[in-house]
């Protein structure tokens, strides 16, 4: 053994920022996350040059997967131009040399906070969701050690009880985003704070989704063709946001998840949350070739809701 076999040439920064040992740990944990869909796998979670809670978990996954040919799209709340999405996209490009794109269909890797694009993802694409709180049980059990035991025992009674109480009190399930969902019939997972509108997109999807919480140091995954079933009672069906009939005031797109824009006169306008899909809609209306891909929702309806 020689010294040179143990060392390597000095580099100011590893390719993709993370050093090889950090990447290997993430790879090992990603494989375990895929092997047990929806189960939260702990990982060390290195500090990256962005504040915790700002997508550092998703970023570490993206940095591990990325190579100079990976075409990357980054969105926040559905928008590519959101300031933090712009910041993450710029960082990914800077440390990897990877090309970036705004077009969902053009992307190999999509890192997203709080949305799944409206256009269907394909088998060759990977979706990385940023996760603020990986523990769906936290509202009923803030202690992580106890919550882990509950997952171990598949003890989701308190979760069901909470949903039942909401129905009794308010006439419906009051959960907004982050709707708890059963994955592969075994682990209850938070799909991250995506709206209820987006959860069915994870069910039996063609693409792989990796969810990563940097601050809380947990990684989990939904492989392709995996059952993701929102927790609902047989007689109280799952309901997405009532956006199916709304029209985007800027693009004219109809039947997708919308942002509500309050107006001075007390009314509200709506604009499509998936900003690049809105752009495509406008371009088509202006006579450019239709670049819109197939969407999960058609005429405001999910094609086959689980």
């Amino acid at each position: 053994m020689s010294l040179s076999s143990l060392t390597k040439p000095w580099e100011p920064m590893s390719y993709g920022f993370l050093d090889p040992s950090a990447k290997r740990e993430l790879r090992r944990k990603m494989l375990k996350a895929v092997a047990v869909p929806g189960c939260q796998m702990p990982y060390a979670s290195r500090e990256v040059p962005m504040a915790r809670g700002w997508g550092t978990g998703g970023l570490q996954v993206s940095l591990t997967l990325i190579n100079p040919k990976t075409r990357v799209k980054v969105i926040d709340q559905g928008a590519d131009d959101s300031v933090n999405a712009a910041s993450i996209r710029r960082f990914l490009a800077r440390v990897s040399g990877a090309p970036t794109t705004l077009d969902t269909l053009d992307a190999d890797l999509i890192q997203s906070r709080h949305r799944i694009p409206e256009e269907k993802l394909r088998a060759d694409q990977i979706l990385v969701l940023q996760v603020p709180n990986p523990e769906p049980l936290r509202p009923v059990e803030p202690n992580m050690s106890i919550a882990r035991q509950m997952h171990g025992d598949a003890d989701y009674g308190r979760m069901w009880l909470q949903l039942y109480e909401q129905i009794v009190r308010s006439g419906r399930v009051m959960q907004g985003a982050s709707y708890p969902s059963m994955v592969n019939g075994r682990h209850v997972m938070t799909p991250s704070p995506i709206p209820r509108w987006d959860v069915p997109k994870l069910h039996m999807a063609k693409h792989l989704t990796i969810l990563s919480a940097g601050r809380e140091k947990r990684i989990f995954a939904v492989p392709p063709f995996t059952r993701v079933e929102p927790l609902v009672f047989d007689d109280v069906p799952y309901r997405v946001e009532e956006h199916g009939q709304l029209t985007c005031y800027r693009s004219g797109a109809e039947g997708f998840f919308m942002n509500e824009i309050p107006q001075p006169d007390g009314s509200a306008l709506h604009e499509i949350s998936d900003s690049e899909y809105g752009v495509k809609h406008i371009r088509t209306a202006q006579g450019e070739p239709d670049a819109r891909g197939e969407t999960w929702y058609q005429n405001g309806q999910m094609e086959d809701t689980p």
Partner: peptide, 26 residues
């Protein structure tokens, strides 16, 4: 300056893509 992966990085990245693909699609 364009970051360039080392040969080791390229190899590990490519092989992991294969492993992740393989485990995701048994």
């Amino acid at each position: 300056m364009q970051p360039i992966p080392t040969p080791d990085e390229t190899r590990a990245n490519q092989n992991f893509a294969a492993l992740l693909g393989a485990l995701s699609r048994p």
